[in-house]
Design a protein around this nucleic acid. Sequence first.
DNA 1: ACAAAAGTGTTCGATATACACCCATGA
DNA 2: TCATGGGTGTATATCGAACACTTTTGT
Lengths: 245, 245
Amino acid sequence: MTRKLMNNLSVDCVVFGFDGEQLNVLLVERTLISPETQEVIFSDLTLTGYHIYEDEDLDSAAARIVKDLTGLENIVLEQFYSFGALDRLLHPNDQAWLEQFGDVFSNRVVTVGYYSLLPSTNVKIILKGRNVSWYKVSEVKGLAYDHDHVLQKALEHLRYKFWHEPIGFELLPMKFTLSQMQKLYEAVLGTQFDKRNFRKKVSQMNYVVALNERQTGVAHKPAQLFMFSRDVYEKTRKERFDFFV
Amino acid sequence: MTRKLMNNLSVDCVVFGFDGEQLNVLLVERTLISPETQEVIFSDLTLTGYHIYEDEDLDSAAARIVKDLTGLENIVLEQFYSFGALDRLLHPNDQAWLEQFGDVFSNRVVTVGYYSLLPSTNVKIILKGRNVSWYKVSEVKGLAYDHDHVLQKALEHLRYKFWHEPIGFELLPMKFTLSQMQKLYEAVLGTQFDKRNFRKKVSQMNYVVALNERQTGVAHKPAQLFMFSRDVYEKTRKERFDFFV
DNA sequence: ACAAAAGTGTTCGATATACACCCATGA
DNA sequence: TCATGGGTGTATATCGAACACTTTTGT
């Protein structure tokens, strides 16, 4: 049985990673090769994404895409926005690409954006014949389609959520130090925090729990390790009246 | 020239209104009439929504839908989520409906959700042959398709934004009293606020500006009128470090 | 012994919360 | 004159911001 793709609907996943210093994003190399001459016509980068099947819901499509490209399952995936501008596929590269695959896909594609969060170290990416790798978010530009825009929107959503609730823990290793956590917040939000004040705040988050364990093999005082407890988080979270400036 | 609809893509608009007491939502009556007997087979309610045209972007589709059903233009419309579950159209009513219009629309429709905010008083709704009217959000259930779910998600987004930034002003008349504003916040967020503390907060929002004008014709001390200045708001807003509990 | 990051407290100003009475108007 | 909602201030507790030095480890 062959499944049918919807030719005008796709899902794009913005897979974010954090390597301890920088926020990264997973991109795929797209290379168009002339069928006659075997020459490379162009090569650029896209977010991970693909059309969805007719018998597949949006969340599953997003999970499938990430799994196909990276081998990863059960990761955080959150839908953030959908994109349907009429000019999303009008760049010459995109048109050339569509020309070669024009019978499969429509000219008018609406895409649903998801983002996902991974620690970019410790992740084995399985390359299924495609070139997938991490790029620094701050250096990414000139992506295929409207993917610069999609990435921008994903970043905005990520930042918005970072400001208002503690969601970054999937970007950290399971056991992390407070300095790593602080660096993550600084990298995503583009700010600096005072170490003592940051730690004072964290010490009030009872869902960030201290382990009886420290770093090893570092050339300085080894840091205490912590982990995030979603359990405690769900149980203690409250809404706050906070509609200001 | 006839425009072509995309048979598997729609936009649904959750139009919220506030009447001074309650949060309301605009719903459309959907009545299926048997082509043979002219009998009413069923009648239920849907959000305002429709399929999009091939040459129309998502935002325009949302604006068109709201305009067609209400006659309103230039209102706030914000995309909040897209829905693509496989079982969104499986209710017997929906199936019967699709049976009558099955050649036009697909069984698999992904819909992009928008919400919009209006004061529900002072709005002239133009009924273009369809029955459109306001319903209390708290009493709505049993909508067609997955619209209960869509409405729920829209409400969540609305509440989330209300907690974190001042966005409700489109739901108030242009000139409003602080009690109206407080009632709005209480209605949307489902909380009670202390009058003095609420007003203390508002007095710190320099984008809520007092007018030299008071209510008239009320059987009590007439209240000071205020208005929202988006201008001042955009100029004075700052991000805050606020990632807690 | 030195380099490198970990870890720790206090003061000050701003903000959140709790709480009760008089005022202006129309009927 | 009465009913209705408008309008106001203070005290206490909590939170945010600014700020510098000692500790522990590997090399």
